[in-house]
Every structure is written in C-alpha cells, then in structure tokens.
C-alpha cells in the first residue's frame, strides 16, 4: 500500500508547486474577470444603443470573438503581435488581454440581453410615478438587470477560470501544467501518479470556483425581494 500514487504529492516541493501553479491561475483569471465585468457592462450598454454604427462594430467584435477558438486568439496575441507589430508581450500579459477580450464580448452580450429583457412598461411605470431617468435606472432597471445577470455571469466566470488551462500553450506554467510535469517526472518511478494528481487538481479548481457559486446563491437570495 505504500506504493500509492498519492505519495508524489509529498515528494520535494510538489504540493507547493501545485499551489504555486494555482496561484498563477487565480491571478490571471481574477484580473481578466474583473476587467471583463467592467468593460462588459459598458459594452452591453453600448450594444443596446439604436445607433447603426455602434451596433455594427459591437456585432463584428462579438462574432469575431465567438467564432475564434481561445487558443487561436492566444497564439494571435502572443506570437502574432510580435510578428506583425514587433510588440513582445509576455505570456501572462497576452493571456490577460485574450481573456479580457473574450470575457468582455460575452459579458457585453449578457448585459445587453438582461437590459432588453426588462419590459418597456417598467420604464413607463417609473415615469408615470414621476421619477427622473436616473431614478428609474437606480431603483427599477439596474436592480432587476443585476438579478438576471448573476447566474449568467457566474457561469462565464467559472468557464474563464477553467479555460486558463490553455495558456500553457504560450509558455505560462499554471496548475494543470505543473500537474503534468509532476506526472511525467515520475513516469518511471510512480506510474499511477496521474490519477492522484488529477484528483488533486479537480479539488483545487473546485476550491476556486465554489466560492463564486456560494456568492451567487447568497446574492440571489438577498435580492429576491
């Protein structure tokens, strides 16, 4: 039984290295999520404008990001920027740019959807009560929009966290890559380490994503009334 693959976790700095990789994952995804929420809300508002020019631009932006696999975007920014403009971005910077571009596009569309789902009579009822435009938004529209946005944006956030495993392709060593390094380094001595490492990584991802779900549940409950 002492041959259990789990012992690789306690060899040398292996466990600390996994946590270090997790920290890279957390940092990059949190920065990207934060930026995506800020830019996404602005983009969503712009998308509801009835101006044909902004409509067209935002549409192209959204479709472009939607069609492109994230891996292609990462390569485009990391290698393409160097080739085309001679800008040498680090892997981390490229990752934040790509994930922010992606998150902003999707978040923008979610915000747009939430905004236009508020029926017109909500605005009109507010106006009928003698509210000013700012008041209508502050007390009627924004609370309802936020409530509708919560589950959608939590999905997006957890999806972004998990997709960061792609950034290994541009040389950023995050939690999944550290796991693979550990498995490979022990390929000949502990052949069954793979299962243990992947189970550990599963729990680490769970630990990162779970607080988001808890937060979402709390907010939904709080805003119910």
């Amino acid at each position: 039984m002492q041959d259990l693959g789990i012992r690789v976790l306690f060899m040398g700095n292996n466990f600390m290295r996994l946590l270090g990789g997790l920290w890279v994952t957390i940092q990059l995804s949190l920065i990207s999520i934060l930026l995506s929420v800020i830019f996404g809300i602005l983009l969503g508002i712009v998308m509801t404008l009835k101006n044909p020019v902004t409509k067209c631009i935002t549409r192209i932006y959204l479709e472009f990001i939607r069609i492109m696999p994230q891996l292609v975007l990462l390569f485009l920014v990391y290698f393409g920027a160097t080739k085309a403009f001679g800008i040498n971005l680090s892997g981390e910077t490229s990752a934040v740019i790509v994930f922010t571009l992606w998150g902003t596009a999707e978040m923008g569309d979610l915000v747009r959807g939430a905004l236009i789902s508020i029926p017109k009579h909500q605005y009109e009822s507010g106006a009928a009560l003698g509210m000013e435009n700012a008041q209508i938004y502050r007390y009627i529209i924004i609370p309802q929009t936020l409530r509708r946005l919560i589950p959608l944006s939590i999905n997006l956030a957890t999806r972004m966290i998990k997709t960061t495993s792609l950034i290994v392709m541009i040389g950023v060593v995050e939690v999944l890559k550290v796991g693979q390094q550990i498995i490979e380094a022990n390929r000949y001595t502990v052949p069954d380490s793979a299962l243990w490492i992947y189970v550990t990584i599963f729990f680490l991802y769970f630990l990162v994503c779970w607080p988001f779900s808890v937060l979402a549940g709390k907010l939904e409950k709080k805003w119910k009334n």
Binding site: V8, M11, G12, N13, N14, R17, K177, Q180, Q181, I182, I183, E184, A185, N186, R187, Y188
Partner: peptide, 10 residues
C-alpha cells in the same frame, strides 16, 4: 513534461 529529455523534478 518529457521525461527523460526535459522535465521538472520535485
């Protein structure tokens, strides 16, 4: 992650 050509030890 290509033991034994290039890999990272514990």
């Amino acid at each position: 992650d290509k033991n034994p050509f290039g890999y990272v030890d514990e």
